[in-house]
Amino acid sequence: MNALILDGALPGDVATPAIAQHLQQALTVAGWNAGIVALREQKIAYCLGCFDCWTKSPGLCKIDDDGRTVTAAMLASDLVVYLTPLTFGGYSSELKKAVDRSICLVSPFFTRIAGEVHHKARYDRYPAILGVGVAAAPNAAQAAIFARLIERNALNLHAPAHAAVIVHDGDPATTTAAALAQALAHMNIDRKVMA
């Protein structure tokens, strides 16, 4: 199975890329084909909010840059890891530039899910989402926001499974691997992505 780690480190951040390496190693050991995309090195323009990817070139952003490649890679994966320095409890701007451009993966049309209005799926299958927030120190409020954000993204992007974990600057590889194993077990991902 394929996993894609979206590394949302800002320029100058050394902790988050190190954790990306730890995650890749742990996923590989667990039998995944895991790749890392360092988003800070990708040319991804900001989403214009123009909706052309819904009503002019359905399913495709009009901006022809790395955003298209990353979006395609997300869809082609069984698991996408949103790796980010925890930024006020949410995503860094580097991760968000890729996430914003993934809106073309869903349909503009509305449907109801769990009593709320959301967008319909465009494709038959979507990747599971694992959020990994990197924090300098424990912060319960930020961790709660992050978990909720991953849950909301999973709902809106039709992910078959999701989980959110917080790791800390300087955590050894074994700690990251343990957090990953726990999250994957929680997601019961093997069964869900194969369904």
């Binding site: 900001y46 909010g49 995503y91 701007s93 968000k96 914003d100 954000l149 993204n153 809106n156």
Partner: peptide, 8 residues
């Protein structure tokens, strides 16, 4: 944008 603030 996708449940949170836009990138900008």
């Amino acid at each position: 944008y996708v449940d949170t603030l836009p990138r900008l």
